[in-house]
Design a protein around this nucleic acid. Structure first.
Lengths: 403, 403
DNA sequence: ACATTTATTTCAGTTGTCAAATTTATTTGA
DNA sequence: TCAAATAAATTTGACAACTGAAATAAATGT
């Protein structure tokens, strides 16, 4: 008989802490309303958090603002310097990292260019080491100050086991990358798919803070997706992310780099557009990936080249189809389109949205909002830091470390 | 500021009750292991359940079987006759209903033929009335014995609000059907999409009892899907089911009865096959829906007619694509293909499974099992009863009715 | 100064849980 | 047949977390 023991519950103390971090500055009453717990419980929880050095009463904030009658609320905030984490994003053509404090503040940033070639595990670990060391240096912190490193990379990543089944960055398959990095850095490490990082970034620092359920779709070299259900990142029934990019949008369709045919990715990702550009416009892919080709393509489309325009147009239509399928399957109230490729207006045009609406049932029209977010290159690393932050909090509150 | 109050928690007592119902006969120790609660707590919970009349000690079961040392376990079972519910499935070409006791036992069944035409709300209510009355009569029970009626029908149904946005059975759109039936029958009513009913049936009485996560795909007049996450039916972020049938599998593809193009349904559902049959084989759709045509088509395919075979073959390939997309999005460990159309081997052939495997990433191959279940016509009504049963339990344990 | 308002704290009471001790029912072996 | 031996079920006491109500604190208005 399979056991069904409870796992998901979170202590009130942790809930209070996360509420404070989410809001920045909140009074106890507001927390009480927010998480639905009595005021008394909030008082005792905050008391413990304060003695544990995780939270502080930030006296005399915008006191004059309130102008209310009764006793003014005393606002609470997390003590930023109680813990630090590092978020690392591995990608091409550059890797990046941030040092983040407990409050979500960025203490240092690093972006380093890297080869577009596939690497071995050791080379990846070397790079992580360099990134972490540099980042710590810039933040004037030492390795001992770091409680956790969050690492994200494209590909099939199993967050639970820390294994990378496949990644465009790695030469080998089925690599136990988390263990490798942990061993190298001698720090606790969390590993995840890059789309999940982006989703965490939205959940922690973006639009997702006020949304219970939403989906994040990102287009880069591939197409990724993350889903938030009930304020929590959902990683699929078996722990791997949701592979929107390898969702099939055409029977016997275009060839995907995964070797299969008809994947959404094979119609809308960088390499798909670059492939078409090389066919119709004689553009050649160069060594640094597809960046140059993509820029040329975009330029020509803007200059009125019809072939270039039709390439983007078709990609847009398939993207609309993919988004419509997300709506048909999950029915989120918000879909966030995010990532660097937001620059290609063609992909995120009004036309795509209206195409998508035309492909979702009438009864759902208007219930799903679509937003395009253009973040800097560092969102990914920030998301990785959020991953580390959330693991740190879980760990802090797990075994009564704060009592 | 949005509030985030906890909603999902279930009392230990309810957990114990549901464990007993799920297992049929269990000892207290086993429950304790199963739900991960101390033996003491189980003892006190069962004591309350017994005095509330919901559970009984079923002494001297297969006593001889055990042959263990020590004190033999005393097995517990739910008192079947403590409450009764009715499950109603509305469909074409017949409606059906079952009376179910608290233990999940069927006390009576009704199947009544009905018109294939769209009806008004009143006509539907009339039919529900007839079904319920007949069913109660056959079970020798009166309306007062029934604690809840579960009703399921195809279409877009909002379980929360009880509204039917659209259904092939209803003439109008946006019908508050639950309220209508409640008013008519003067009984509490739960309403849901028929695919969700089937999923509940699997969860309660089928393969799902031992599975934490699985998906159910059903092909009938339309294509439906239900998803179980963590032993719970997931109804999508906004409460509507997952519309696999209206997932797009082809840009500008075949016309669907929903008015859009390229829906999976438009390639694999009854009416899609019937449409092709009428084109290639001059089969005409008659008044009682598509049943006759489908049977003729199947017959001809079995007789070696190539046009008929190719119709099924194409449907099978698109079904494989749809299933592959389910795997790519949710990655469940089991997909159950269920419903009446299991008879059409062509749709559920080995070929479909291998096509599907060819469309899912290598890393996932072998992690998703596919099973085809052929239940009788009454599964749907049983699922509706399960819906009612689960609502009844929730209600029983909500406001301390059992203390 | 004093009533009013609102935030926070205190505290008694409740609930749910667990660990350990105890009771009960049964098998095994002498 | 009867005393271990064994395992299930129950009882008990302690404990932790939470709630609701009352008390207290810190402001504003009159």
């Amino acid at each position: 008989m399979e056991t069904r023991a409870d796992v998901g519950s979170v202590s009130t103390k942790q809930q209070v802490f996360e509420a404070i971090r989410a809001q920045g500055h909140v009074s106890r009453v507001d927390i009480s309303k927010y998480i639905g717990v009595s005021a008394g419980s909030v008082t005792s929880a905050t008391a413990e958090l304060i003695t544990a050095g995780l939270v502080r009463e930030s006296t005399g904030q915008e006191r004059d603002q309130d102008a209310g009658r009764g006793r003014p609320p005393v606002s609470l905030s997390v003590r930023a310097d109680s813990n630090f984490v590092i978020g690392v994003k591995l990608s091409t053509p550059h890797h990046s990292a941030v040092v983040m404090d407990m409050a979500g503040g960025i203490r240092a940033e690093v972006i380093l260019p890297c080869s577009a070639r596939r690497q071995g595990v050791d080379a990846i670990c070397d790079f992580v080491d360099t990134l972490v060391t540099t980042a710590l240096d810039r933040a004037s912190l030492s390795a001992g100050d770091v409680t956790m490193v969050g690492v994200g990379l494209p590909g099939f990543v199993d967050h639970e086991t820390g294994e990378v089944e496949w990644s465009p960055l790695l030469r080998d398959q089925g690599v136990p990358l988390r263990q490798a990095i942990t061993a190298r850095m001698n720090m606790p490490v969390e590993l995840d798919n890059d789309a999940n990082l982006l989703t965490l970034a939205e959940l922690w620092f973006g639009a997702g803070r006020s949304m219970r359920d939403f989906a994040v779709v990102t287009i880069e070299h591939g197409v990724g997706m993350g889903l938030v259900i009930n304020n929590q990142l959902y990683r699929g029934a078996q722990g791997m992310g949701m592979e929107l990019g390898h969702t099939k949008v055409q029977l016997d369709g275009a060839l995907c780099r995964c070797g299969q045919r008809g994947c959404l990715e094979a119609y809308v990702a960088d390499y798909a557009l670059a492939r078409e550009a090389s066919t119709a416009l004689n553009m050649e892919t160069d060594d640094d990936g597809t960046t140059t080709v993509m820029n040329m393509l975009l330029e020509q489309a803007n200059d009125g080249n019809e072939a270039a325009q039709s390439i983007f147009r078709r990609a847009g239509r398939y993207l609309a189809l993919g988004l419509a399928n997300v709506v048909n399957m999950f029915d989120p109230s918000l879909i966030i389109l995010s990532g660097d490729r937001m620059r290609y207006d063609y992909l995120y045009a009004q036309e795509v949205v209206s195409d998508m609406i035309a492909m979702t049932p009438n009864t759902r029209v208007g219930k799903t909002r679509i937003e395009a977010h253009q973040w800097g290159d560092l969102v990914w690393a920030k998301g990785a830091a959020a991953l580390a932050l959330s693991a740190t909090t879980d760990r802090l509150f797990a075994a009564g470390h704060t009592e």
